[in-house]
């Protein structure tokens, strides 16, 4: 029940795009058609799902105040949390590289559809944002952080596919010239965000 509630909330209520604006750069750049949006969305879900539990464990056993207590009392007072940004981003960059190589070797078909998006993801704010929110929200165990990762990833995926579908349509609309392209896309995302806010009162 806890997991289900966390899952639904991270998809709809605390949506990475509509509530926190995370991953906007690639969101706007790669949402011109549904097919590529689909590829990037799947890649984001995947990378979130891999990096978040790893960063969770690192945070728990290495970074947070008192995390080194398992090494002995001598280390219990150490607080390495000031290193968390650099550790998180290094893990993300490394995982993205490893994932890229593994996928290329063992699933060439998947690689040819995802491949070009993977390097982009290292600097996608949604991934680092996921890890930072995970740290701030102090999840109880690895399971919760994995569920949160899956939910946020799916939320991001839904958002990019939906926007791509809308942009395919608005390409044929009669938009005022200064608003064409970027301007109208921002406004569309804003309106989608307002629509997503109806999920706010959700009870589980």
């Amino acid at each position: 029940m806890e997991y289900l509630s966390l899952f639904v909330k991270s998809i709809f209520v605390d949506n990475m795009i509509f509530a926190y604006f995370l991953g906007m750069c690639s969101y706007l750049a790669v949402s011109k058609n549904v097919k590529t949006a689909n590829g990037l969305g799947v890649a984001v879900i995947f990378v979130l799902l891999v990096t978040l539990p790893i960063n969770y464990l690192l945070n728990k056993y290495l970074l947070q105040p008192g995390a080194l207590a398992w090494l002995g009392d001598k280390y219990a007072a150490l607080d390495l949390s000031f290193l968390s940004y650099i550790v998180f981003i290094a893990v993300i960059a490394a995982i993205v590289q490893v994932v890229e190589m593994v996928v290329e070797k063992f699933a060439p078909a998947l690689y040819s559809s995802l491949g070009i998006f993977l390097p982009l993801i290292a600097v996608n704010c949604a991934i680092l944002g996921g890890s930072l929110f995970m740290q701030e929200r102090a999840f109880a165990n690895v399971g919760e952080s994995a569920v949160y990762a899956l939910g946020s990833g799916i939320g991001w995926y839904l958002a990019i596919v939906a926007l791509a579908a809308i942009r395919e349509k608005t390409a044929y609309s009669n938009v005022p010239a200064p608003l064409k392209g970027l301007g109208i896309t921002f406004i569309t995302v804003g309106l989608m965000g307002i629509a997503f806010m109806t999920f706010m009162g959700i009870k589980l």
């Binding site: 209520v13 929110f133 701030e136 929200r137 102090a138 706010m200």
Partner: peptide, 8 residues
């Protein structure tokens, strides 16, 4: 609180 939903 640390990170409750803004507005809720």
């Amino acid at each position: 609180h640390k990170g409750e939903t803004p507005g809720l």
